[in-house]
Design a binder for these strands. Structure first.
Length: 350
DNA sequence: AACCCGGGGTG
DNA sequence: CACCCAGGGTT
């Protein structure tokens, strides 16, 4: 039996049951694909369920505010996915009568839909013979054919894509694409794949050569940057505090946070002299207390954030600028915030 | 081509 | 601690 048929046979016997596998409607398929980018099924599934419940159709999602979408997305990470999801929902609802594009080429034009996602939707919903090449596919192909080309090099991307086109079942692209991904997720796992019960073990080149654990090859490891965050949690007698929305190009774009002083070092002695503090507090009627004795370390893929939380009790008034919002502390959970701050809020505003 | 973007799970 | 995850966008 040929490669694709073996995979499909394995898939039909071993596939997990998932809500988005019950339909060919592009809306839930698209939604699930965006949520599952760089995200495991176990982590993304509860988010998928709440999105489908809150926004059963693309029109419901289009009608929502960006803040509502970000709030539902809170904790899932890579927040540009949520913003692009919303942009595309509005585009499909307003300009396309709620009808998603039906070809790989046209799907690619949607914000947040790249080569992988366009291929997934086109093949699953419309049976277009375009191969998905995700992390699972790179792993399965590099092992089965013992290919050592780095999967994140330009040449590697072309090589694996060409191989994927050649291998795919052109008569059943929907099952084939899901089969090879499911196979990579469950059988040909990154660590400790169970090669002894693998349906492809007789013809797997990496297994023959003892290379399974070394493949796929990936170039460079990322360097982690250290940053030092000092959050100011103002707290007045009538339970007001200040938050502001992150803008620009950095992390957590669109999410809210407390007034932030970032420093180059672990240093913590200049808070009350800093312009951000002085802009809010004009007199000496305050008490400032670090909430933890040690910084909270929050680890992102490319950054480690050493974070201090300063609780500042104010007797008088607090002043906000244009970028800040004065809110009642009981409303704090209405705003989308990073997990780092969500954790603090759960402890401090309990 | 290089860099940026989260949070959680695994060994 | 290193690595990975149903990747995509920007420069």
């Amino acid at each position: 039996m040929i490669f694709s048929k073996k995979l499909i046979t394995w898939y039909l016997q071993n596939k997990r049951s998932m809500p988005w596998r019950e339909t060919n409607n592009p809306y839930p398929i698209w939604l699930s694909e965006i949520i599952l980018q760089q995200t495991k099924v176990a982590q993304g599934l509860p988010y998928y369920m709440s999105f489908i419940e809150a926004f059963p159709t693309v029109f419901d999602l289009a009608k929502a505010s960006e803040e509502e979408v970000l709030k539902l997305w809170q904790g899932l990470g890579y927040y540009s996915r949520a913003r692009n999801l919303h942009v595309t929902a509005k585009h499909v609802a307003d300009n396309l009568n709620g009808v998603f594009p039906v070809t790989y080429k046209d799907l690619l034009l949607l914000k947040g839909v790249g080569d992988y996602t366009a291929s997934a939707i086109a093949s699953i919903c419309y049976k277009e013979a375009v191969p998905v090449v995700d992390g699972n596919v790179y792993r399965v192909l590099s092992r089965y054919f013992n290919i050592e080309t780095p999967i994140n090099s330009a040449i590697g991307v072309k090589q694996f894509k060409a191989l994927a086109i050649q291998l795919m079942d052109h008569d059943d692209p929907a099952d084939y694409n899901q089969a090879i991904m499911e196979f990579g997720a469950l059988q040909c796992r990154p660590k400790k794949p169970d090669c002894f019960i693998c349906p492809l073990c007789d013809s797997c080149e990496a297994l023959k050569k003892g290379n399974v654990e070394r493949l796929p090859v990936k170039l460079k490891k990322i360097k982690v940057k250290k940053r030092y965050f000092n959050y100011l949690i103002f707290y007045t007698k009538n339970h007001q505090t200040i938050i502001s929305q992150r803008i620009g190009n950095g992390i957590w774009q669109g999410l809210y946070e407390f007034p932030l002083i970032e420093s180059d070092t672990i240093n913590k002695d200049t808070i009350v002299d800093h312009p951000v503090f002085k802009q809010v507090v004009e007199n000496d009627e305050y008490e400032i207390v670090p909430y933890y004795s040690e910084p909270v370390v929050h680890k992102l893929s490319h950054q480690h954030l050493y974070t201090r939380f300063y609780v500042i009790k104010i007797d008088g008034l607090i002043k906000t600028n244009e970028t800040q919002k004065k809110i009642n502390t009981k409303d704090i959970r209405k705003y989308p915030v990073p997990i780092l701050l969500s954790n603090f809020i759960d402890v401090f505003f309990k």
